[in-house]
Each structure stands twice: as C-alpha cells, then as structure tokens.
C-alpha cells in the first residue's frame, strides 16, 4: 500500500529530509544484544486497573455532542459510507 493510502492524506509523498534521517538508521551499527532490551514499560499483572465502566458526566456528554462536526434535525450525521 502506498503512503498516501496508509496515511489517509491525498497525494502524500515521502519527504527527502525525512528519508535522509532514515538512511542514517539503515546504516547504523546494530548490536543484537538481548541484555540491552528495555523492559521497564511492562505493567505487572498485579497492577492492572479495575475493569469497570465509568459513566461520563452530563457535561462530558454535552461537550462530546457539541464537538461532533455535523448535526441535522437533532441527529449527529456521519460521512456517507459507500462500499468499495
């Protein structure tokens, strides 16, 4: 898939400046040393948050509706879906 499709940006093309950055990484020395792997982002199973449903407040719901881009006759309107 091309980057314009992947990015959902019409006519998007890779940038020369960014490609220069990627070239540096491609040419970097790699040390496949498992000792250097960082595991600190792992969340312990004993430390997971409660699996509970938290009801949004009335004001939250109000703002979420206000943020919706299109409204017609009291309904929130989504973009037209046409199957490819």
């Amino acid at each position: 898939m091309t980057v314009d499709i992947l990015s959902s940006i019409k006519g998007a093309k890779p940038s020369e400046s960014v490609n220069k950055l990627f070239d540096v990484i491609k040419n970097a020395n790699q040390q496949n040393n498992s000792n250097t792997t960082v595991h600190n982002k792992v969340v312990s199973l004993n430390d997971l948050r409660e699996d509970v449903v938290v009801e949004s407040s009335a004001i939250e719901k109000e703002i979420i509706k206000e943020n919706f881009p299109k409204e017609k006759n009291g309904f929130l309107v989504v973009a037209k879906v046409i199957e490819d």
């Binding site: 959902s8 943020n67 919706f68 881009p69 973009a79 879906v81 046409i82 490819d84």
Partner: peptide, 15 residues
C-alpha cells in the same frame, strides 16, 4: 479523521 470531532470536509465516500 473528522468523524466524531474536529473539522470535517465531506467527500463522496467515507475514505
């Protein structure tokens, strides 16, 4: 993507 919030510019299809 303009669906639930933010600006939306309508096209012929969802994509």
């Amino acid at each position: 993507d303009g669906t639930n919030y933010g600006a939306r510019i309508e096209g012929d299809t969802l994509k």
